[in-house]
Amino acid sequence: MRSEEEGRFHILDVSSLTSVHRPMTRRAMLRTEDGVRIEAVYEPCMTGATGTAVVLAHGFTGAVDRPAVRRAARILAERAAVVTFSFRGHGGSGGRSTVGDREVLDLSAAVRWARELGHPRVATVGFSMGGSVVLRHAALERGTGGRTDAVASVSAPARWYYRGTAPMRRVHWLVTRPAGRLVGRYGFGTRIERRPWDPVPLPPVRAVPLIAPTPLLIVHGDRDAYFPLDHPRALAAAGDAELWLERGMGHAENAADGELLARLRDWLLRA
């Protein structure tokens, strides 16, 4: 799972867009620089505004058509265009999940698609694994066509290999054990790469100092069962970031209620 040379990305099949859900919503298959096909959905802003597009990055075992992702997209689309997509190894995308490493390539392909569709300003919001990916993407894509104009990271880890909670010990079993990867494939619809990272990708906490001057928001619930509060505090302390600690919130997109999603949307629009 190499994280080096995360360079330019290419769009595939944009001409085969089809209408779904409501008029003007579009589906496409995107191709990353390393050749993985990524399913993506574009939803225009409900008010007709064409300026900002928000690209939403889901958590591990999520996908573009999961209810929590669709709910978040609907709320974001009230004031911004929205691109959602399935990371590699998830949903209808190809490849295998590298659990946050090569997924930076997937996000960059989605950001570039948003710009191809005419949006001069593109913001990213990611949840859990997606939260770590938006941080690394913002650090690695500065000054390129895949850059982002504002970043919100929700329920993300600060460091790799964390096993301090029971849910994270289960995630590590899912990722590192053959039996766990079978459960991931047939129980969660997630195909997981069996090879370990080589080299280990840039940790989120080391990515944060590289993001400025892009506006950065760190969001975390005080009832997150996966990552305790030292993770968001470490991320926020590592660079120029705003920190929201949400009372009563659990983990990632499944725990983000409509009020929080609306606040996230409004922050991304004004940042």
Rank of each mutant, 00 (worst) to 15 (best):
T32L: 09
T32I: 13
T32K: 12
T32D: 07
E33S: 15
E33F: 05
E33C: 09
V36Q: 00
R37H: 00
I38N: 02
I38H: 04
I38K: 09
E39H: 05
A40E: 01
V41P: 02
E43P: 05
E43N: 07
C45H: 01
G48D: 03
A49G: 14
A49R: 15
T50G: 13
T50F: 00
G51M: 08
A53I: 02
V54Q: 02
V54R: 03
V55R: 02
V55S: 04
L56M: 11
L56N: 12
H58L: 13
H58C: 06
F60R: 12
T61G: 00
G62I: 03
V64R: 11
V64I: 15
D65G: 07
D65T: 08
P67G: 13
A68L: 12
A68K: 10
A68P: 08
V69H: 08
R70G: 01
R71N: 12
A73Q: 11
A73H: 06
R74D: 15
I75T: 13
I75C: 08
I75D: 13
I75F: 09
L76Q: 12
A77D: 11
E78K: 05
E78R: 10
R79Q: 15
V82G: 12
V83N: 00
V83M: 02
V83H: 01
F85M: 10
R88V: 03
R88N: 03
R88Q: 03
R88T: 08
G89M: 02
H90T: 08
G91L: 04
S93I: 04
S93D: 11
S93N: 03
G94N: 04
G94K: 01
R96Q: 15
R96E: 14
S97M: 10
T98G: 00
T98R: 09
T98A: 05
T98C: 11
V99T: 07
V99E: 10
G100D: 02
E103Y: 14
E103N: 14
D106A: 15
A110K: 05
V111N: 15
